[in-house]
Nucleic acid binder design. Structure first.
Lengths: 355, 355
DNA sequence: CTGAAAGCGCTTACAG
DNA sequence: CTGAAAGCGCTTACAG
């Protein structure tokens, strides 16, 4: 069924059909009704390619997930189906939220995953082919900056979630980041409220902005509360499970181990829990643990983990909304926003009754 | 950059550019090289809509996730970002695997989630608009059958993962299901190997084929080993966490509780673990538990859950491969396949030393 | 208020 | 081996 067919059926021209569909003014209500009725009846929908070719926007955005490991082959489908999502526990809520929000705003979403630098050429071609009206990038690192900046310069509409880029306000793109600093302040403040005065931190990879900000929140909060801070209380991890394990082992080798430990992400907590169990200690009786990210597995840990939710799904929703608004207004703007972090109280932290 | 521009630049016609891109024979290598070089240099890619309109296939498939609750409003973005994925722990690996495999086979994927019956009209329109070459459905239930059958009859290429439909071989579509029966046999056989002779089952919702098959595997295996089976050993659950909890409470109210329990999915195990802890019992010392699905959270349970992996990602990969092959061969075939189930040994089962 | 016609950027028989 | 031209199914100034 083409618009021509429908037109003939109704004794109208294609132009009129098109005008009704695209909501042109100056069409009598009777004609409108007649056309819509026939559209329903014959299950007509305009050919998407033809519309797009004629200049109408696609209502299609791309969600581009970047999981590029430098100097490594692509790992594609992994040995375990859990590996990818485990590597990137945040991808899943983002995918859901973007699709959800886009659907609500009447847009389709094309999802693409890149594992290798080579895959990035395909990303390039998604734009060249004029397949989409805009795109959301997740998981970008240094390596992809060049590609993305060139895309922005070509006036493509782009939103980025959780970029590591710092001074990004100059670029005409949408940047949505977590408020790592605020989250960290909330985590440490909570431990202080519980009465802890000896609080350790296992940091993330300090090359990453998020790790730096989480450390900064820790330091500032302790300082503001007049708690003395020693280097001994800071263990430099790297966001991996193993470094969480090592961090705990380190702390409990020292003379006065902290009574509470802020672990900079939930993945490291998995290792931390393992180490604590090995040491024959109990959480939270012997030591309180607070995580960061509210990863999907954190409620299933034993005990369920108190952590900071940075709501990737909210970030994704916000990025999607702003992107689609830009598309509809046809203007490329530079936007930088931080999404709130919230404390999720579960069972891994306990009041400290002095010592 | 349009093909016309490129043609002028090279002193050729659009036709020749097109023929090179589409790999026509009878073009001298020198011309080919010249054209490809220019394509690289000017970053040209043919406009996707124009190609499609001219009759070339899209290389785009849709992945349609159905999460329709009958008689309920859509829940869209949920209170918790974990809810959706928790409701459907299997969506995530499927999304990843489909995208991965499609990308490898040089296809794009459009992902769409439907929460309400109303959303299904949008699914309809994806086809009408000729946006895609084929589609994969996940999570279909009775309600969607009509839509899907009509789509199949209109010669759309369709694959379905984990359908509840039984006698589907008649339809010209691709059906990929888990081998629930085989998985169940493996689970129960493992418990028998460990020496258990008193084995209970918490079934799923027996309206569902998967629940029926899992129960059948249990019954047959016990029978083949000459183990007497009583109705007391069968608790009818419904795949929800609460029914797992209730099932355990039921068994331990009976005179001789089973020494091992086959819980028909991992979600019910979460409730089962809770009940067992409340009863002051230990897993696996007091009772062995085996689950089904190998859900993402199962390694994080305490103790880590021994379960059956039905590899949704393998199913997704297979469905994607078969669908794209159908697209390329332009033929609609009826295919029904079962994907293997494998036993994942973790720490929730223990040898039974007689009694 | 509505129709005829140009144009969007390709592909592909049809000629030569 | 390659070009000129028709056609894919829409939208939208341009007329009337």
């Amino acid at each position: 069924m083409r618009s021509e067919d429908l037109a003939k059926l109704l004794g109208l021209s294609r132009s009129t059909i098109s005008r009704v569909i695209n909501n042109y003014p100056d069409i009598p209500q009777t004609t409108r009704d007649k056309v819509w009725k026939a559209i329903e009846e014959y299950n007509y929908a305009p050919n998407a390619s033809a519309r797009k070719l004629a200049g109408v926007k696609n209502k299609m955005i791309a969600l581009i997930l970047l999981d590029v490991k430098d100097n490594e082959e692509g790992h594609h489908i992994k040995v375990s189906e859990h590996t990818l999502i485990h590597d990137n526990p945040f991808f899943s809520p983002i995918v859901n939220a973007v699709i959800d929000q886009a659907n609500k705003m009447d847009h389709y979403v094309l999802v693409s995953i890149s594992y290798t630098k080579d895959d990035l050429r395909k990303v390039q071609s998604i734009f060249q082919q004029k397949l989409i009206d805009g795109a959301i990038f997740v998981g970008t690192q240094e390596a992809e900056n060049e590609l993305i900046f060139s895309l922005i310069e070509q006036n493509h509409l782009i939103a980025m979630i959780d970029t590591s880029e710092v001074n990004n306000a100059n670029h005409n793109a949408i940047y949505i980041n977590a408020d790592n600093y605020e989250g960290s302040v909330k985590a440490v403040s909570y431990l202080l409220e519980l009465g802890h005065r000896s609080i350790g931190i296992i940091t993330g990879n300090l090359n990453k902005l998020s790790a730096q900000e989480r450390l900064a929140g820790y330091e500032t909060t302790l300082m503001q509360h007049g708690i003395e801070m020693t280097d001994k209380m800071i263990y430099q991890g790297d966001f991996t499970e193993n470094s969480g394990y090592d961090g705990i082992k380190y702390f409990f080798r020292t003379a006065n181990p902290p009574t509470a430990i802020f672990v900079s992400n939930d993945t490291m907590v998995v290792g931390a829990y393992r180490a604590i169990t090995e040491l024959g200690l109990r959480i939270p009786e012997d030591v309180s643990i607070i995580g960061f990210d509210n990863s999907f597995f954190s409620p299933y840990l034993n005990p369920p983990l108190t952590t900071i939710d940075i709501s990737f799904s909210e970030m994704a929703k916000r990025a999607t909304t702003l992107l689609i608004e830009s598309i509809e207004q046809e203007q490329q703007r530079g936007i930088v926003e931080k999404e709130n972090a919230t404390l999720i109280k579960r069972e891994s932290c306990k009041k400290w009754k002095g010592s």
